[in-house]
Simulated scan of single mutants.
Amino acid sequence: MMTSIQSNGYSIYIGKEIFKALSSFLDKSKYSSYFILCDENTLQLCLPTLITSCSKLQTAEIIEIESGETSKSLEFSAHIWQTFIENNADKKSLLINLGGGVVSDLGGFTASVYKRGIDFINVPTSLLAMADASVGGKTGLDFIGIKNVLGTFAQPKAVFIYPDYLNTLSSRHFQNGLAEVFKMALIADKKFWNLLKEEGQDEETLIIKSISLKNKLVLNDPYDKGARKILNFGHTIGHAIESLFLGSVNELLHGEAVIIGMLIESHIAYQKKMILKKELDEIISGIPPYFTMQSLKSIPLDSLIELIKNDKKNHNDKFYFSLIDKIGSCKFDLIVTKNQIKKAIDFYTTLTK
Rank of each mutant, 00 (worst) to 15 (best):
residue 325 D to E: 12
residue 199 E to Q: 11
residue 19 F to R: 02
residue 155 Q to E: 10
residue 135 V to S: 01
residue 311 D to S: 06
residue 214 K to V: 05
residue 296 L to T: 13
residue 347 F to H: 06
residue 223 Y to N: 12
residue 42 T to H: 06
residue 57 L to D: 04
residue 322 S to G: 03
residue 187 I to T: 05
residue 285 S to T: 14
residue 42 T to Y: 01
residue 202 D to S: 00
residue 105 D to N: 09
residue 185 A to T: 00
residue 137 G to W: 01
residue 80 I to L: 01
residue 198 E to M: 11
residue 240 A to D: 00
residue 349 T to Y: 09
residue 54 C to R: 01
residue 122 N to D: 11
residue 66 E to L: 14
residue 315 H to S: 14
residue 92 K to A: 15
residue 196 L to N: 02
residue 260 I to S: 05
residue 18 I to E: 05
residue 162 Y to M: 07
residue 249 V to M: 12
residue 318 K to N: 14
residue 338 K to R: 14
residue 137 G to L: 11
residue 122 N to K: 07
residue 210 S to C: 12
residue 57 L to F: 13
residue 314 N to V: 03
residue 241 I to G: 05
residue 126 S to E: 10
residue 196 L to R: 00
residue 72 K to L: 03
residue 149 V to R: 15
residue 9 G to K: 04
residue 343 K to S: 12
residue 293 M to Y: 11
residue 46 C to P: 01
residue 57 L to T: 02
residue 325 D to G: 07
residue 221 D to G: 04
residue 278 K to C: 08
residue 100 G to R: 04
residue 269 A to P: 05
residue 178 L to R: 10
residue 10 Y to P: 13
residue 288 P to H: 12
residue 158 A to V: 07
residue 40 E to N: 15
residue 107 G to Q: 02
residue 268 I to G: 01
residue 327 I to E: 05
residue 79 H to N: 11
residue 179 A to V: 06
residue 20 K to Q: 12
residue 297 K to V: 09
residue 266 S to R: 05
residue 51 I to M: 06
residue 112 S to R: 09
residue 76 F to G: 04
residue 140 G to Q: 04
residue 187 I to G: 03
residue 166 L to M: 01
residue 215 N to R: 15
residue 122 N to F: 02
residue 235 H to S: 07
residue 251 E to V: 08
residue 3 T to H: 12
residue 343 K to M: 10
residue 112 S to F: 04
residue 345 I to Q: 08
residue 223 Y to M: 13
residue 174 F to V: 10
residue 158 A to M: 03
residue 26 L to Q: 00
residue 310 N to G: 08
residue 19 F to S: 10
residue 87 N to T: 01
residue 300 P to V: 04
residue 343 K to A: 07
residue 335 I to N: 08
residue 16 K to R: 14
residue 320 Y to R: 00
residue 331 K to V: 09
residue 342 K to G: 01
residue 199 E to W: 12
residue 283 I to S: 09
residue 65 I to D: 03
residue 221 D to M: 02
residue 81 W to H: 15
residue 184 M to S: 15
residue 256 E to R: 04
residue 305 I to V: 10
residue 128 L to A: 11
residue 309 K to F: 12
residue 106 L to E: 01
residue 221 D to V: 00
residue 2 M to Q: 15
residue 223 Y to G: 05
residue 309 K to Q: 11
residue 288 P to F: 06
residue 294 Q to T: 06
residue 144 I to P: 03
residue 116 R to K: 14
residue 258 V to A: 08
residue 117 G to T: 08
residue 332 F to L: 09
residue 12 I to L: 03
residue 72 K to V: 04
residue 24 S to N: 09
residue 166 L to K: 02
